[in-house]
Design a protein around this nucleic acid. Structure first.
Lengths: 301, 301
DNA sequence: CTTCAAGTTTTGTCCTAGACAAATTGGACG
DNA sequence: CGTCCAATTTGTCTAGGACAAAACTTGAAG
């Protein structure tokens, strides 16, 4: 048999579904049904792994496992390309963004970087962040959801875009005028582009940003805020982060920080959230700038 | 009780020991012996987690679990601070590196960046990577192990250093002369500094690097290699990655790639590894450059 | 028609305990 | 002193069962 087969650990790695879940689904829903190797251990054919990946993707889009696992293969495929159309359609710019996406899709890293550099030069950092990077990121998320972007294409996009933003940030004069803002994310939240966009805008305004990367344990965020004498702690939540966990998390963190330290939370993950005591929710990049202006007004007054 | 307790999933995250292993040790060796919560589930006191982390570290140093778990606390501690002294002691440079570490330790991000930029300008990128970034990273790892670095300090170091390297890489001319090298890491391997160091050296040599960030599922690595028509796939493993898993992982990946694609594995995690069929192990940054030269020689011949 | 609370189903994670293969060690023998 | 085989060590897999937390439904009240 030259079909490659995967043991349960390999499937866990590649799909992100835990061994417990894989065995549970087999028991409850009758899928996947792996073959068994000489030792009686599960051995998943590539086709089943492929289907599991599709199911995982649909689950991330909000579908429920029970339904998906009961479906025949064909119905599954028909669910995938469901894109309800309300893509931001601003005419000309829309086409240019599509071109940028095409470059990534064609794996033309150099072309993408060149095009983005040009755009950055033309628009300036602030408009570049707000009118290019932000919508592009949303587009990539959509494309990934409807299956027109592979995982590795999304990784490439993220990696290249991170570089552009960091480079632009590094080129800014090191300002010391504004508040000190500590930027990071909580454990299980790995997305960093939102943080970088915020950092770029804050740095442009002359604030002093302290970037700690992603996945900081809460206790460590508290210590870091203290050590750096931060005025503001800014967290980012992507849409992929379970929203219901956010309020409790933020309240825990609020208690770890001195009352004088402001706590901000932004990113697409906080859009639909109700207000949280002691936390400023940033609903957009504009709102983030507004929050900074308000902080300064309060500090001056 | 105001002592914080951890459930088994949290302990797995914090120690890197799988749930299976934690339960097995409890059954076999009588440690750890967690309390039970209201639902009868394991609840590990902080002290036990601390000890598990120490045991894990000693295992990574080559000690055997059976011995360690049978030891009383005091003996364990006596094994720990054994830092065999062969820290690269090159006199003057050693002092300068210590100064850089001190800047991070004092949370002086600007000072650190300035000092590193100067070093980069003075040494040139190749020596900067080999003689500054590499030893510095090792030092930070050591400092984290012996507790003199906080988690957030390590995050800050990583974040700032990543930026320096990426900036330097971006400043290089986009060369198209060498092989196309796809650089990434497997799931569960989040460390990226090693990859960036390799990328810097390869790019200096005129190779075309395709950086995909970390944590790519194996199947995706295969697809990406195909889509980008990569000549070489380069993976990085940190010391924190369980070494025993590497050979099987690499063999799985080897089978997913066309025979014409070379497979390289580097990083501090592969130092003590025996050879793997079809995989070129990079034991050092110098060795990585050697591998590149060898590839070119073979391609030309 | 919306909003909120209570009930029901779904779903993931944890539990126990046994089996076995892969890796490592120790010792015997050349 | 090296080499090979046996004994031990060690991690991962297996099987269902149990249960709590999340998500969906339903129904009542504003």
């Amino acid at each position: 048999m030259n079909n490659p087969c995967f043991n349960i650990a390999a499937v866990e790695r590649d799909t992100g579904l835990s061994k417990d879940v894989l065995r549970m689904w087999e028991r409850r829903y009758g899928f996947p049904v792996p073959e068994r190797d000489a030792n009686g251990e599960r051995s998943y054919p590539a086709a089943q792994v492929e289907r599991l990946r599709l199911i995982k993707r649909l689950m991330d889009m909000g579908h429920r496992p029970g339904k998906l696992l009961a479906m025949p293969e064909t119905d599954l495929a028909s669910l995938a390309p469901r894109r309800p159309a309300p893509r931001s359609a601003t005419g000309q710019d829309d086409g240019e963004l599509a071109e940028l996406l095409t470059l990534v899709k064609q794996h033309d890293a150099h072309g993408y970087q060149r095009a983005m550099q040009q755009r950055l030069a033309r628009q300036g950092l602030q408009h570049f962040v707000q009118d290019t990077v932000a919508p592009l990121t949303r587009r990539v998320g959509e494309a990934w959801e409807d299956g027109s972007f592979e995982v590795f294409e999304e990784h490439l996009f993220t990696e290249l875009t991170k570089r552009l933003l960091r480079q632009a940030i590094a080129a800014l004069p090191g300002a010391t005028r504004g508040p000190r803002i500590l930027l990071t994310s909580v454990p299980d939240e790995v997305h960093v582009l939102g943080l970088l966009m915020a950092e770029a805008l804050f740095a442009l305004e002359g604030a002093e940003c302290i970037p700690l990367g992603t996945q900081m344990p809460l206790l460590e965020i508290g210590r870091a805020a203290n050590a750096h004498q931060a005025d503001i702690v800014g967290l980012s939540f992507s849409v992929a982060f379970p929203q219901r966990r956010i309020p409790a998390l933020m309240q825990d963190l609020r208690q770890l920080l001195p009352a004088s330290v402001h706590l901000w939370a932004g990113g697409n993950g906080v859009q639909r959230l109700g207000s949280i005591e002691g936390v400023r929710l940033l609903t957009s990049l504009d709102d983030a700038l507004g929050a900074l202006a308000a902080w300064r007004a309060a500090a001056a007054g």
